[in-house]
Amino acid sequence: MAALSRASRIRNPALFICDIQEKFRGIYEFPKLISTTSKMLRAASNLQMPVYITTQNRAKLGNTVSELQPHLVGPHIRADIDKTLFSMITPEIEAKLPSDLDVIIVGIETHICVTQTTLDLLARGHRVYILADGVSSMNPEERGIALSRLRDAGAIVTSSESVLFEILRDANHEQFRAVSGLVKETKEDTKGALGAFSKI
Results as ranks from 00 to 15, higher is better:
Ala2Ile: 13
Ala3Cys: 02
Ser5Lys: 08
Ser5Pro: 02
Ala7Ser: 14
Ala7Cys: 06
Arg11Trp: 08
Arg11Tyr: 09
Asn12Asp: 07
Pro13Glu: 08
Leu15Cys: 02
Phe16Asn: 01
Phe16Pro: 01
Cys18Ala: 14
Ile20Thr: 06
Gln21Ser: 12
Lys23Pro: 00
Lys23Phe: 07
Gly26Val: 00
Ile27Asn: 03
Phe30Pro: 01
Phe30Lys: 04
Ile34Pro: 01
Ile34Val: 15
Ile34Glu: 03
Thr37Asn: 09
Thr37His: 08
Lys39Leu: 15
Ser45Met: 00
Ser45Tyr: 01
Asn46Pro: 01
Gln48Trp: 04
Met49Ser: 02
Pro50Ser: 05
Tyr52Arg: 02
Thr55Trp: 04
Thr55Tyr: 07
Thr55Met: 09
Arg58Lys: 15
Ala59His: 15
Lys60Thr: 12
Lys60Gly: 15
Leu61Ser: 13
Asn63Thr: 06
Glu67Trp: 11
Leu68Gln: 05
Gln69Cys: 03
Pro70Lys: 11
His71Glu: 15
Gly74Pro: 05
Pro75Glu: 12
Ile77Ser: 06
Arg78Ile: 13
Arg78Trp: 09
Arg78Thr: 11
Ala79Ile: 05
Asp80Lys: 10
Asp80Gly: 00
Thr84Asp: 06
Ser87Phe: 06
Met88Leu: 10
Thr90Arg: 10
Pro91Thr: 07
Glu92Val: 13
Ile93Arg: 01
Glu94Met: 13
Leu97Asp: 02
Asp100His: 15
Leu101Arg: 09
Asp102Val: 09
Ile105Ala: 03
Val106Asp: 01
His111Trp: 12
Ile112Trp: 09
Cys113Phe: 10
Thr117Ser: 15
Thr117Arg: 10
Ala123Asn: 13
Gly125Tyr: 05
His126Tyr: 13
Val128Asn: 04
Tyr129His: 10
Ile130Tyr: 04
Leu131Val: 05
Leu131Thr: 01
Asp133Pro: 04
Pro140Ile: 02
Glu141Arg: 09
Glu142Trp: 14
Ser148Ala: 13
Arg149Leu: 14
Leu150Met: 15
Leu150Lys: 02
Asp152Tyr: 15
Ile156Asp: 06
Thr158Ile: 13
Glu161Pro: 03
Glu161Val: 11
Glu161Thr: 12
Val163Ala: 02
Val163Asp: 02
Phe165Met: 08
Glu166Trp: 11
Leu168His: 10
Arg169Glu: 13
Gln175Leu: 01
Gly181Gln: 13
Leu182Glu: 10
Leu182Asn: 07
Val183Ser: 02
Thr186Gln: 08
Lys187Ala: 08
Lys187Asp: 11
Asp189Trp: 06
Thr190Phe: 14
Thr190Gly: 06
Thr190Ser: 13
Phe197Met: 07
Phe197Thr: 02
Ser198Val: 06
Lys199Phe: 11
Ile200Lys: 09
